[in-house]
Design a protein around this nucleic acid. Structure first.
Lengths: 313, 313
DNA sequence: CTGTTAGCGCTTTCAC
DNA sequence: GTGAAAGCGCTAACAG
C-alpha cells in the first residue's frame, strides 16, 4: 500500500480511504489512486486489514451437507465476485456441529458475515450466532407448498383432476385444502405416505393399482418415489404419461436422468440471492444503518421442468 | 496472548513458541503454558500470525464443481480437525477459472497450502500454482481401470464369462486386454460406446438384444447408462439379474436408488487422505524438510457395492 | 531456555 | 481533504 501511496504521491492513509470508498477524499484523488492501484495490481493484505480492525474480506458459509451443490456454488460465486473469501464449514453430523459451536466465539473476528445454507438452528445455536455480532443470513429449505402448487397447477392445466399425492413419511400434513384450492379432486385414498426410496414408490404404485380407480396423475415428493411409481406402473403395463402422469417435487438429478417432470429449486439463484442480502447488510453496517431492514425482494422460488412423464389427459 | 503470558508468568514470545511446538522451550513450561491457554480458552488470532509471517492456518481448496460432495466434505473435515480454515474456490467454468488464476499471486500469502480436488491443470496453470511457493496437493480423478478390474472380478466370481462393456463416448480405449487378463471372454460386438444418459443405455441394450446372443453381464461406465440398460432389458422381459447382471462403474446415487451393483469411489476417504498428504508436507516444510518426499501410502481406491442387479450365472 | 525488541501492512485517531 | 503517528496481536531476530 505504501508503494501505491508513493506512486500516487499521497499518504497511505489516503490510499486506504480512497480504495475503501471512505468519505474524506476528493473525488479526483480517489479516482487517481484507484487507477494507480489497479495499474500496480495492488491487492489489499487482508490479514493486515483484519488485524487493524477493518474488514475481514471473508464470509463463513455453513452447510449441513454438500448435497445441494448448486446452492453452495451459487453462493461461492457471488461472494467471490464481491471480493469476499469463502470459509467453508460443513456441519455434517452432531459432532462436527458441536465442535463448530464449541469454538464459535473467535469466528466473529475472522469473518464479516455468516451465510447458512439450509441449516436449521436450535435456539441456543441461534443465540451463539447472534453473539458473534456479525450479520447472519440464512437460506431456508424449500417450502413444500410452493412446489406442490406448481405441480398441481401443471397437471390441472393438462386436464387432470384425479390426482394422487405421495408424501414423505415424516410429513404430517395432508395438503388437501391446497389441492382443492387449486381445483383438483381429492380422495382420501389418494393421499399416501412413503419412504423416499424407489422401493417405497413401487409399494405406493401397488396400492394405487389395487384401488378401484387409478388417478390420472401422481405427484411425488421425491425423485426416488417418482421413479418407483414410474417403474411399477410401467411394469404393470400402464403407459407414462399416456395412462398416468408423474410429477416429482424434488430429486432433480434423478428426475432429469429418467425424464420425469419435476419441480426444481433454483438453488444457484437462491445462493446468489442470499449473498446479495448479506452484502446489503454489510454495506448498511458500514454506512451507519441507512435504510432499516427493508429486505426488499423475495428469494427466487421453485420452477417446473417439464419432461416426458406428464401429458395431456 | 499477552493475557496468557501474564497468567502463566512468562513472556508472549514463550507462549507463542510453546503453543506452536517450536523448539527452545522446556517441556515443563510448554505443558504449563498449554494448559493455561486451554483454560483461558485462548485461540490464536490468525490474522496477526499471518501478518507477522507465521502460519496462516488456512488452506485453499479448489474444486471444479461441487458434484462430488463427499470429496469436499472429507477434505473439509480433515482440515478443520487439523486446525485449518478452508477457503473454498469453485472453478466452475472457464470464466471463474480464468479469474482465479488472474488474481492468484496474493493467495500465497493467505494460505499455507492448496488442495485441488479433481481439477486438471494446464501447464500454465500448474506453473502459476507452483509459483505460489506453498505446497500443492491434488486428488486425481478415478482411474477407470481400477473400477473396471473390480467390476470384472465381481462378475467373474459370479460365474459370468460373456460380459459386455459399455464405455462413455469420449473414451477411446477398449480395455479388451484388461478384461481378457481378468479371464473374461471378449467379443468385439460387446464393447460398446454410449452417451452417459439413460437414453443412451436404452439404445445400447437394443443393440445387445439385436445380437445373436446376449451377454450374461453388462458393465456400464455410468449410472445413467446402467439404468437405461436395466430399463430396456426389463421392458423386453429379461430379468435382472436372472438373465443379465448389470454393474455400474460410476453414478453412486443413481445406482443406490435403483439397486444397481456399482463401483464406488471412497471419495470421503480420498479427501481425507489428500489432506493427510498436505499436512505432512506442511510439517516437513516447517521442520526443515526431514524425510524427503517419501509419500508413503497409496490413496484409498475404489470399492464394490453389491446390490440386486448382479447374480450368479 | 527465556525475555526484549522490532516490525508485518493495514485502519484510525488526531492534527493540520 | 490530507498526512503523521499509534497500534491491532502476533513472530522473529537478537540478547542474555
Amino acid at each position: 500500500m505504501s508503494d501505491v501511496a508513493r506512486a500516487a504521491g499521497v499518504s497511505a492513509a489516503t490510499v486506504s480511504r480512497a480504495l475503501r470508498g471512505e468519505p474524506g477524499v476528493s473525488e479526483a484523488t480517489r479516482r487517481y489512486v484507484t487507477e494507480v492501484a489497479k495499474r500496480m495490481r495492488y491487492a489489499i493484505a487482508r490479514d493486515a486489514s483484519s488485524l487493524a480492525g477493518g474488514r475481514k474480506y471473508a464470509v463463513a458459509v455453513l452447510t449441513a451437507d454438500v448435497g445441494r451443490g448448486d446452492l453452495l456454488a451459487g453462493a461461492e460465486g457471488a461472494l467471490r465476485n464481491a471480493g469476499y473469501d469463502v470459509l467453508l464449514y460443513v456441519l455434517r453430523d452432531g459432532d462436527s456441529r458441536a465442535k463448530f459451536f464449541e469454538d464459535l466465539p473467535p469466528l466473529g473476528r475472522r469473518v464479516d458475515g455468516v451465510l447458512a445454507l439450509s441449516v436449521e438452528f436450535s435456539h441456543d445455536e441461534q443465540q451463539a450466532l447472534d453473539a458473534l455480532d456479525v450479520p447472519v443470513v440464512a437460506v431456508r429449505p424449500d417450502d413444500l407448498r410452493d412446489a406442490l402448487r406448481l405441480a398441481a397447477g401443471h397437471v390441472l392445466e393438462l386436464g387432470h383432476r384425479e390426482v394422487a399425492l405421495v408424501l414423505a413419511e415424516d410429513v404430517d400434513e395432508s395438503y388437501d385444502e391446497l389441492l382443492v384450492a387449486e381445483g383438483l379432486d381429492v380422495r382420501p385414498e389418494w393421499t399416501l405416505w412413503s419412504s423416499s426410496t424407489v422401493a417405497g414408490g413401487e409399494q405406493v404404485a401397488d396400492v394405487l393399482l389395487d384401488g378401484d380407480r387409478l388417478p390420472t396423475a401422481v405427484i411425488c415428493s421425491s425423485g426416488e418415489v417418482a421413479l418407483g411409481v414410474f417403474l411399477r406402473l410401467r411394469r404393470d403395463g400402464r403407459g407414462v404419461p399416456e395412462d398416468v402422469s408423474i410429477v416429482s417435487l424434488d430429486g432433480p438429478e434423478l428426475a432429469r436422468a429418467v425424464g420425469i417432470t419435476a419441480v426444481e429449486g433454483a438453488w444457484r439463484e437462491r445462493g446468489e440471492h442470499a449473498v446479495a442480502g448479506l452484502l446489503a447488510e454489510l454495506r448498511e453496517e458500514s454506512q451507519g444503518r441507512a435504510g432499516g431492514t427493508a429486505d426488499g425482494d423475495r428469494p427466487p422460488s421453485v420452477h417446473l421442468v417439464v419432461r416426458e412423464s406428464t401429458g395431456r389427459r
